[in-house]
Computed example of a mutant assay.
Amino acid sequence: MAKLAAEGRFSGVVLLSHRGRTVLSRSYGMADREKGIRNHEGIAFSLGSAGKPFGAVAVLQLAQQGKLSLSDTVGTHLKGYADGIAEQVTIHHLLTGTSGLETPDEDVRRVFQSREEVHEYYEQWIRQSEPVAAPGTRTGHSGADVVIPALIVEAVSGKPYWDYVQENVFGRCGMTGSGFWTRPRWLTDEHIAHPYMTLADGSQVDAVRNLDEGSPSPDVLGKNPGRSFIDAPGDGGFATAPDLVRFACALGDGTVLHRPWAELLTGAKIPHSGSSFGAYGMPVRIADGQWVFGRGGGNPGVSAHWSVYPYTGWVGVVLGNCDGLPLQEIVGRETQAITGASPGDGGGG
């Protein structure tokens, strides 16, 4: 990591914890270059897709309370969807990425100005989803699979998704440095890392302070994470590395979900490639004979990954705020160090 940081390819925090005790913690680079604020353990980073499992936890909390069933269809809780979605797609399908739905591309150039505007956009966006395969067919990274469960959480709990997760996930886990924060706070709070996005000429800019700039990378062409006033329901958020360890520990000790429900969250549901499987909101895999679960995420100027090794009590966290990080290789080395598995067994986003 020090070598990557020296090459300008890593700025952020790496942390390894064993049974809740920090074994290794290293911080590199700047959280805010303009203000001269260095990265450290107390800095919160944008998570991207690494925050999606929070939504699955929220759904399972409500299922644990008997307020919904995983076999409920979309139409059980939400109105206005076509019959093929409302009557056939279940919460289980959505959480496993097997809804058979395809969602149109997002408008990545739109600059949002309020929570209400973000919520309205994503609610209307996922209503444009269309069935492209039978429910139960793996369709991957559909926006509907993320946003619809979050809207169901809202319908059942009576609270905005962001507030529900803040109170019932972050709050219960003691994740005091984590949240679904808005762009004004991102700009002013010295405990939040700014994403440094690489432009076509190789230069880096602070994405939150330069909303007119977009990524030249083909897979996220034109995107700038700072344009989202707040992350979409079911996605993203901010967390510190120690808070992600707290989340992992809370999953293991019954704090955030009763143990059978936590095991349901991380249990293998859908076979992927090799020894990797789909669980609820995250991939799980077998590495050198033991289960590993976690989630990765990325955006221009954003890299995040957390891994839990439940058999041995290890947790690994990598949080970065610049482009160019070989995240899969880093997680592979982490897995090798903890389990003895070959580096090729790492990754999983």
Rank of each mutant, 00 (worst) to 15 (best):
W291S: 14
R9C: 10
P53F: 02
D206I: 07
T139C: 13
T73Y: 01
T266N: 13
A31L: 08
E41L: 15
C173H: 01
G254V: 10
P131S: 14
Y164P: 02
A262P: 01
M1D: 09
S11M: 11
D145G: 09
A193I: 03
S157P: 03
V302G: 05
P149R: 05
P300Y: 01
D288V: 04
K52D: 10
W186H: 14
A248L: 03
S46P: 08
V147D: 01
G214E: 10
E329Y: 09
P135G: 07
L95D: 04
S157K: 09
Y121V: 04
G344N: 08
S25Y: 13
L16P: 02
G84C: 13
N39I: 01
I152R: 06
Y161H: 14
A207F: 04
F45M: 00
G294V: 12
G281I: 00
G301F: 09
S303A: 13
I286E: 12
E41Y: 06
G226F: 05
L70W: 09
V23T: 10
S157Y: 04
Y164T: 02
G214W: 06
E117Y: 13
R172M: 00
I43Y: 07
G316D: 06
F170Q: 08
P271D: 12
G252N: 14
Y311F: 13
W181P: 00
R115D: 05
M30D: 12
A250G: 13
A150Y: 01
C173Q: 03
N321G: 08
Q166L: 09
G237V: 03
G171I: 01
S69F: 05
A44G: 07
D145T: 01
A31F: 02
K35P: 00
R33W: 12
R209K: 14
T137M: 11
S27F: 00
P160E: 07
G344V: 06
R26K: 14
G97W: 10
M30A: 10
A50I: 02
Y122C: 12
R172N: 04
I43S: 02
H92A: 13
T73L: 01
G84N: 15
A193G: 02
V23M: 15
A155Q: 11
M282S: 07
A248D: 03
A6Y: 05
G316P: 05
G171D: 01
R26L: 11
P283E: 12
G136Y: 04
T76N: 11
G48P: 03
L265E: 03
T182A: 08
S157Q: 03
S129I: 05
A193Q: 00
V89D: 09
A44Q: 09
